[in-house]
Structure formats: C-alpha cells, structure tokens
Amino acid sequence: MDIIVLIKQVPETSDVKMDKDTGTMIREGVASVINPLDLYAIETGIMLKEQHGGCVTVCTMGPPAAAKALKEAIAMGCDEGVLITDKKFAGADTWATSYTLAAAIKQLGEFDLILAGERATDGDTGQVGPGIAAWLNVPLATYVSKIESLSADSIIIERLVEEGYQGLQLPLPALLTVVKEVSTPRLPTLRGKKKARAYTLRAMSASDLAVDEAKIGLKGSPTKVVKIGYPKVTRGGVVVKAAGEQGLSNAVDSLLEFLQEKKLV
C-alpha cells in the first residue's frame, strides 16, 4: 500500500487573540503548525500502513520553513517526506495549488491512496483535495469519517453528508479527504523524533516538475484577493445578570422579550 498524505503548514490558531477594539487578529508570536485537520489524514495513513504494510509519503507545498511540518509528520510515523518549494509557487490559489500538487504526485510514481485534510484552517476552502482528484482523474471521496475496509484494489469508506453517513466503494488508486472522526492522531515518539532529525527530505522545485509555468503560483491563479476587511468581532449586544430569584426571572423575561421583538419566538 503506497500512501501519499498531503499536509499544509498554517498559523497556529489555538492561541490567536483578537484585538477587541479593531477586530483584527494579533499575529505577533503566532507559531506555524501542521494544519490540525491534516493530523487526521497523517494518522489514517500510518494506521493503514501498519495494518496493510507499505509506505507513507508526506508532501507539502510551501516555503522552506514548511520542512518542520514534514519532519513532525515523519516523527509521528510517516516514512518519506517531500517538500515542494520554489519562489515560483508562491501566492498559489487552490486551483494552482492542486495543479502543482497533482504534478508532484505524478512525479512520485505509482500510489494506491492519497489522503488530505478536509480543509486547511487558514484558507478554509477544502478545494485542494477535490481539485487534485480532478487533475489526476482518480476517484474521490470527501468528508470521510471511517475506513471500513481496504483491499489490494478497492476501499470502502463512510462519509459525512447532510442526512447521515454515506457508504462508498472506490477502486484504487483513490483520493480521500478526511474529517476528525476518522482517527485519533498519535503524538510523535522519541524514536520518531530521532529518525526525523536524521532524515533528509526530498525537495522538488518548479523545474523538477513537468509544470506549465503559466499555471503555477500567483500568476497561474485564476482568483485574486482584491480586498481584506476586518469584521468587528464584538456585536455590542445586551448582557443581563441572572442573580437571585427575581434577577433570574427578570433575565429570562427580557430574553423572551428580545426574542419576540426579533420575531424569533
């Protein structure tokens, strides 16, 4: 089983603080981490390898500093790491990113399964996985919450849709984007960390890939961000205290009034 896991390095969000007055994010000292939703993809890849044998290759397209994310994935148990990095890739939107990653995957040769996160917490689009499946013309399942079974030539999964869990059978090779329910990510072990430190990542640049330079990076991206706005976080709503029996009753009454005014009840 040859498995490719796609990860992205994103700004850490768990300690993001918002400036209450301006509604902007305080970015000072914000570290970079593996996109938290990609940890489920990494864990799934390692688990499947443990059950079925094979090799897990973790790939990221990003700046040289993204090497740290790959090393972390190797410390968790991935076998190989590929850093797709080049100034020419910078500023890519999801279309150009999926094009570049698809080209890199072709370069890596035969594979059985590609695993990606459901979405990255910075761009938050969830478009890269489906885009790669389209470029490579491999069957796709998004929102995968469970791997039911895996054989040499097909995989049965469940995916989360609006009405419930949908079961799908896909022939291999296939691409899955996974949600949190699919696995519980392990922590890197000491041995894993040692291995990661000694490991030399494979690097790929634009010239290593058979890519059309008009389709990569900012230049190759159909979409352009034209404006950034900062919505005010604070809504300035009413806050009442429910202290004591009377206070409690008054608070609930004023909530009901508020809801009636808004025609919500």
Partner: peptide, 27 residues
C-alpha cells in the same frame, strides 16, 4: 462568548435553561 452575543445572560445555566423552558411553555 459575550463579545459576540446579541443577548447574553450571566447566570447558572441549570437555573436559566429550565426557567426559560418553563416560560416558553407558558407563553
């Protein structure tokens, strides 16, 4: 959460929610 709330009640939910349910029942 009160930063983003349009209406907030500072209180014990185990008192507020049952009373809210009861009053909605009466309403």
């Amino acid at each position: 959460i009160f930063q983003v709330a349009d209406f907030g009640i500072v209180g014990n939910l185990f008192e507020v929610v049952p009373l809210l349910n009861a009053k909605l029942g009466t309403c």
